[in-house]
């Protein structure tokens, strides 16, 4: 979804820097304003500084669990949409994320179109 006047502000949180890099390039090209954070701490710092419409958070990170990050995010900005990213075998933790307020979860590796669809759906749910 592209809105020229006010681009969607995304926060990507993942400890795989390479992943953040390529994903942010691709999403930027689709018209999103992307900020990346390579750890939970960095993400929280970013959220403290700027406003975001949606965050994509990896479940497994070295310093902080994705669920912990989600909880902090929801405390800091209850209106923030959060999509969890997870690997095979960790779906349970991802579903836990939904009960903690995440909009949905996606299993890595995920195609860009699927990610954008989910992002669009999440933002639409927030608008209603």
């Amino acid at each position: 979804m592209t809105e020229q006047s006010s681009p969607v502000r995304l926060l990507l949180v993942d400890d795989e820097v390479g992943y953040l890099e390529v994903l942010s390039k691709r999403l930027t090209r689709r018209g999103y304003r992307v900020t990346t954070a390579s750890s939970g701490t960095e993400a929280i710092r970013a959220l403290r500084q700027w406003e975001f419409d949606l965050a994509v958070v990896d479940l497994k990170m070295e310093d902080m669990d994705g669920i912990e990050v989600l909880k902090v995010f929801k405390k800091m900005d209850p209106s923030l949409r959060v999509i969890m990213l997870t690997g095979h075998g960790s779906e349970r933790a991802a579903r836990d994320g939904i009960t903690q307020g995440a909009f949905d979860y996606l299993i890595k590796p995920v195609g860009l179109e699927r990610l954008i669809e989910t992002i669009t759906a999440a933002l639409a749910s927030g608008a209603s």
Binding site: V22, H88, K108, P109
Partner: peptide
């Protein structure tokens, strides 16, 4: 290991998409 392998695979998929 599935997790570990998911990350590089995810990067590769995205790079290919890029």
């Amino acid at each position: 290991i599935a997790h570990e392998i998911n990350n590089p695979v995810a990067i590769m998929v995205q790079e290919a998409g890029w």
